[in-house]
Design a protein around this nucleic acid. Structure first.
Lengths: 189, 189
DNA sequence: ACGTCCATGTAAAGAGTTACATGATTCA
DNA sequence: TGAATCATGTAACTCTTTACATGGACGT
């Protein structure tokens, strides 16, 4: 059911097509939600039947037609109810990297460190990307359009999340070095 | 397919029943994986057909029989291959709280702050629980049993993750206070 | 010429959730 | 006496992913 609210949340800002919504997911929500276009189109169809959104066809010269969805009053009502009266369930996370981290003891130190270094690079990259995105979008720190507070907040979350992962990787690599030098004190020479 | 590797990872440490594995998920893996018991039993069945694990029935007086699974050589081989030769896809996260955070502009400041405060409390609780768990399990900081390095690492991840969320909530609350006082300078009096 | 963008959808397979089902033991 | 723990499973349903399907426009 949550995908509905994710979509309604985006439509609360402004009407959009399934295609737009998919791009918005990828641009601003990678840290906390994801949906394939096939899923989005299907869900929008169901939401229209339930009268949470309504659509209009926009014909374009030189481009395929598009279907623009807007939130209905009923949709906004249900969105606000969800926002205010429901409490958030704990996040559902599937993180294969941490699955690997849990069994690093099965492989030699060098290879374990290699895996951690790779993840560090990945996190650093996302950190830099998100930081640049935030800087570009919110030059004056706090957004002028109040509808963009959410994007400002969640991009900050993304930045902190990536930084946290980087810090953790560094810590874990240090830990392994420490254990390694305790086992074989000649390693430093 | 990843659930398979999660289960094999746990079985690489020691043989266990589906029931045990489910509890291990809940005790040490909440930050990065989750599976219902119905899913675990089904998957173990399929894994046995694929000869990645084998099972033995253990009869117990006063308790129901149990089926203890162990990793086969083929299972260990595939696990190590996955660990070494495959790179981790980005984590898949579904976080309803951040979905709400993105649309906080739709509601009054007081209520937005209330939502953030609640999440802060939730994160503080998980922080405290995980911290206590780590302290209790790893009193000498680095685990003596090298097979527990993974648990040490991932519990540290859990602690940092919870702390990061707490810090972010505090930051976001401050932000809202700041915006509020800019809009209505009398609010501080 | 080739790839990417625009734009929407369906079908099938795979993964995850919820409900149903059983039944003894142990602790408060 | 009621709840929690131990212990395993099936069935139905929902959600997510991957593949299939189309086709013009635009840039290099």
């Amino acid at each position: 059911m949550s995908l509905r609210y994710a979509l309604m949340g985006l439509l609360a800002k402004e009407p959009a097509t399934g295609y737009d919504l998919h791009h918005q997911f990828k641009e601003t929500m990678i840290y906390y939600w994801h949906a394939h276009h096939s899923q989005i189109y299907r869900e929008l169809g169901k939401m229209e039947i339930d009268q949470l959104v309504h659509s209009e066809i926009i014909t374009q010269p030189n481009h395929p037609n598009k279907k623009r969805y807007s939130l209905t009053n009923e949709g906004l009502k249900q969105l606000l109810h969800w926002l205010l009266d429901e409490s958030s369930p704990p996040p559902s996370i599937k993180d294969e990297f941490l699955l690997r981290a849990k069994i690093l003891h099965l492989i030699p130190f060098e290879q374990a460190i290699q895996i951690l270094r790779e993840e560090h690079m990945v996190s650093q990259y996302t950190y830099e990307m998100t930081h640049a995105w935030q800087q570009e979008k919110f030059t004056e720190h706090i957004p002028s359009d109040h509808r963009e507070i959410g994007d400002y907040f969640t991009s900050e979350y993304g930045i902190r999340y990536a930084k946290m992962r980087m810090g953790w990787c560094e810590w874990a690599i240090n830990c392994l070095h420490h254990i390694q030098s305790q086992r074989d004190p000649n390693i430093d020479k």
